[in-house]
Amino acid sequence: MASRPEFFWLFLVLLPIVIIMIRRYLTGRKNLADVAGLWRPSKFYDLYTVKNFFSSLGILAFFVFAILSLAGFPGREIPVSYEPAGTDIIFVVDVSESMKAADIAPSRLTAASRVIKSVCENTPDGRFGIVVFKGGGIKMIPSTEDVESIYNFLSFLSTDLLTSPGSNIHSGVETALRSFPKAEEREKYIILLTDGELHEGDMTKIAEQAFKADVSIYCVGTGTAEGARIPLADGGYLADSAGEIIVTRLQEEGLRLLAEASGGKYYSSSDSTLLPELIGIAAGTVEADDSRYRIVVKERYRFFLVIALLGLFVSRAVKVIKWKKKF
């Protein structure tokens, strides 16, 4: 269906237009009676009615078809050749307080760090970068083949890296999207490691942004549905302002949505397929066949615009051409 259905709201504009047209038609008839008087044949009225009808129809056709063209309908599919030269992966790691929870031993963050390490270790010649996020996203390691610097960074990965409170997945992914090197054609992936506790940001919006940038997001849900308390340094647990101890749980739905809408996949950190599949993606062995061609869908709008233009010309022509040598 329409690629931009929000433009259909413009159809509401037609309503006042039609009302104005009818009112002007009625005043027109009255004026005609005043001006033409009784000595002119009543055919004048008929001509006025018919011409006015078709002329108004032309204007309405213009608006209707212009709106249809704005909404845009998918038309021809054009295959565009595409030869990715390897892959580019940015890990986006949640370092919010809830990542300290130990529902995956020893902690969610350590589990995330292990996933990153295994993927890097098993992908020689891969290129990786790391972004961490809390209240905002920060690029820690730019996209590089130097996995040594990745391992180095992982050794001091902790929830104390950033001070801004929160868990802004949106900002994390946005930072990652900006971190892909330009001037190269590689398959671009984001591997997002988080417990999905979304405090800010809208998943569908993020997915749309990633999709537009040709980046697929693979989400790894670190945590369990049962959840766990967040340990503090003094041996206690994090509590809210009322003194209740907070239990943080893995929120899968949002991550699943984000992954699928951006062309990626969701994994729970306990999935046995997690590592082999992520390594496959990193090594570029997945989807290698259908990525030679990318389908670009051309929007069909010219047809509608031509009819809209025709409507305008018809409305003018009906007005200007004299009928029966009278009106």
Binding site: R24, T27, G28, L32, K51, I59, F62, A66, L70, L305
Partner: peptide, 24 residues
């Protein structure tokens, strides 16, 4: 461009029909 065209045509329609009360 289409949006601009719609605004221009609507402006003409509005001025003529509502302000000048053109009947045809």
């Amino acid at each position: 461009l289409t949006i601009l065209a719609m605004i221009l045509i609507f402006a003409d329609f509005f001025i003529k029909k509502v302000i000048f009360r053109e009947v045809f």
